[in-house]
Write a protein that binds this DNA or RNA. Structure first.
Length: 582
RNA sequence: CGGGGUGUGGCGCAGCUGGCAGCGCGCAUGGUUUGGGACCAUGAGGUCGGAGGUUCAAAUCCUCUCACCCCGACCA
């Protein structure tokens, strides 16, 4: 491609709207253009990179037995009602009305459609496992698109679905897919880590995310350097012992005693006023879960993880209660506890029952109880881990301190089980002739986000640094002073011969100063740069420079094509055999 | 949805105590240049996000509204 003809141009100035590095570089390099909030066009350079990513993913999916197909974006809303997920997706589901006022969803994901498809195609255990997948545009009405391609409302996703005969077979498929994902990230040069995750609106039994750790990430990963435990903060567990402190568990229960605590409405104030550590208090937080008032209690030094709480409650919608709702439940905000409160569901963190003699609200303004005890003074309908893990907490598996880092979610895989296949009757006959629902899994990768993550991970102050496997072109030729001394003719010849040798070339044939060309080359980030100028031609050579290297070298013009072709091959081979990133 | 911010030529911005719509980059033409974002000359390009209002006069003041960005809530 001649740069003089390329659609899309580079800019010197960083666009005002772009904050994250990948967003700035994608715009400045002329790879994408914004159309609206969370809506982007891919320009030719960006689209070429995206297609390379797509092809790598396709190869890895095919390698493990995936079968590419294509499902529609328009999905009958009834399918979503059948699965019940129109509720959990809520407003994130884009819907449209057709001319008959019939409601259709713009697919945010395709579990419903693919399960409906399996219902028609799947008959026997001999058909299993099935691993259909597609690479297709998805629509999600995100509350807040952000970070350029990091979170958008229309995006291209590879979504694979697996149908297996039983749990064990699903586990095997799941592990196969995890390895396939690892291969994808390795080939993209991305160091992704696999972490335990909450399965969110997709639902299901288990799920893992693949994270690229970087400060621009939206998610927080809790991980343990000692044993390798890693989980999304939404999911992460931690040991709730207090380092160096002896918990009150095991002590005798002392009698409940009301004490005056004027103006002490927060855990901090109560603990200070009573000269007790925060973990000797009981924290109560109020929620409304699917319309029902809920009291969540947790040890005072811990915070409630709402994702865990939502799972514990098995509810679809969870929000903090408004102050009037708290009042009408008969609760004195700041002095609250489940003690003596009836008509509200109570959820207790698993830290609570094992504690003794905690300070709890007396449900009377200005007063707290000493020596509250779970079981004697109140009980919960659910006891579960609903605590937010924090940096420095003890690892749930080995006890070493956990670290917290931000990460970009570049893939998410789920064990769905049979709930969806049961709802949509995706069943098969097993060896005994018994009808059974298929055991499902699903596996998603967002391509645009992957592209952004690669840039976040691989750039410098000049621009993008693509791996050879992803670069929009393999080689970038800069012809300096193209009107002088045969520069053009040499540049043209190299351009033609390299292309004839199967090398993809971006050829800067513009009439522009050397600085402009070099800066654009660095910005666009093609891994090999070939400079032709009167200076190099004086010695019968051209200059070769790697984008990732500081120094450059000279190659004789006659040997340039063979030399460059070898460098491209070597780079591709080296990237392909690089160490696994996961 | 809560909080903060921004909308003026393709991009980045100034103008905002009302009085001719500007600067830099980019773009076009001509000329001089050329190894890390050259220079000179000439030129094209703007319903100042939109609607309403105040005023002799509105980019500027007032009201409403829309869009976009950031933080949070939210989010396979």
């Amino acid at each position: 491609m001649r740069l003089s003809r390329l659609f899309g141009r580079t800019t010197r100035e960083t666009p005002a709207d772009a904050e994250t590095t990948s967003h700035q570089l994608l715009i400045r390099a002329g790879m994408i253009a914004q159309v609206g909030a969370g809506i982007y066009s891919y320009l030719p350079l960006g689209w070429r990179v995206l297609r390379r990513i797509e092809q790598i993913i396709r190869e890895e999916m095919d390698r493990v037995g995936g079968q590419e197909l294509r499902m529609p974006t328009l999905q009958p809303f009834e399918l979503w009602e059948a699965s019940g997920r129109h509720l959990s997706f809520g407003q994130s589901l884009f819907t449209v009305l057709d001319r008959k006022q019939h409601r259709l969803a713009l697919g945010p994901t395709h579990e419903e459609v693919v399960t409906d498809l399996a219902r028609r195609c799947l008959q026997s255990y001999r058909d299993l496992p099935l691993m259909p997948y597609q690479i297709q545009t998805k629509f999600r009405d995100e509350p807040r698109p952000r970070g350029g391609l990091l979170r958008v409302r229309e995006f291209i996703m590879k979504d694979m679905y697996s149908f297996d005969a039983d749990e064990e077979a699903l586990n095997t498929t799941y592990e196969t897919m995890a390895r396939a994902y690892a291969s994808v990230y390795r080939r993209l040069g991305l160091p992704a880590v696999m972490v335990e995750a909450d399965s969110g609106a997709i639902g299901g039994k288990a799920s893992h995310e693949f994270m690229v750790l970087t400060s621009t990430g939206e998610d927080v990963v809790m991980h343990c350097a000692s044993c390798g435990y890693a989980a999304n903060m939404e999911k992460a567990g931690s040991k709730k012992d207090m380092a160096g402190e002896v918990l009150a568990a095991g002590e005798d229960m002392l009698p409940l005693e009301e004490v005056e605590t004027p103006g002490s409405t927060t855990i901090e104030e109560v603990a200070t006023y009573l000269k007790l550590p925060r973990h000797s208090t009981l924290k109560a937080v109020f929620y409304v879960a699917d319309g029902e008032f809920v009291i969540a209690v947790i040890r005072g030094d811990l915070d409630v993880n709402e994702v865990k709480l939502q799972r514990a409650l098995k509810c679809t919608l969870l929000r903090l209660a408004e102050s009037d709702e708290i009042e009408s439940a008969g609760i004195a905000a700041g002095f609250a506890s489940p003690i003596g409160i009836s008509g509200a569901r109570v959820v207790a963190d698993d830290s609570v029952p094992e504690c003794r003699n905690l300070v709890a609200g007396a449900n009377r303004t200005g007063y707290h109880y000493l020596n509250s005890n779970y079981g004697r003074d109140y009980v919960a309908s659910v006891v579960a881990d609903i605590a937010l893990a924090r940096e420095g907490d003890s690892c749930p598996t080995c006890g070493a301190p956990l670290r917290a880092d931000r990460g970009i979610e570049v893939g998410h895989i789920f064990k769905l089980g049979t709930s969806l296949s049961e709802k949509l009757s995706a069943v098969f006959l097993d060896e005994n002739g018994t009808s059974r629902p298929a055991v499902m899994g699903c596996y998603g990768i967002g391509l645009g986000r992957l592209l952004a993550a690669v840039i976040e991970h691989s750039h410098d102050d000049k621009g993008i640094i693509w791996p050879m496997a992803l670069a929009p072109y393999h080689v970038h030729i800069c012809a300096l002073n193209p009107d002088k001394d045969g520069v053009s003719s040499c540049g043209d010849r190299l351009y033609e011969e390299l292309r004839a040798a199967g090398i993809e070339v971006l050829y800067d044939d513009r009439m522009a100063s050397p600085g402009v060309k070099f800066n654009d080359a660095d910005l666009i980030g093609i891994p090999l740069r070939l400079t032709v100028s009167p200076r190099t031609l004086a010695s019968g050579s051209v200059e070769v420079k790697q984008r990732s290297a500081k120094e450059s070298g000279l190659v004789a013009v006659d040997e340039a094509v063979a030399s460059i072709a070898a460098m491209v091959r070597d780079a591709l081979a080296a990237e392909d055999s690089a160490n696994p990133g996961v």
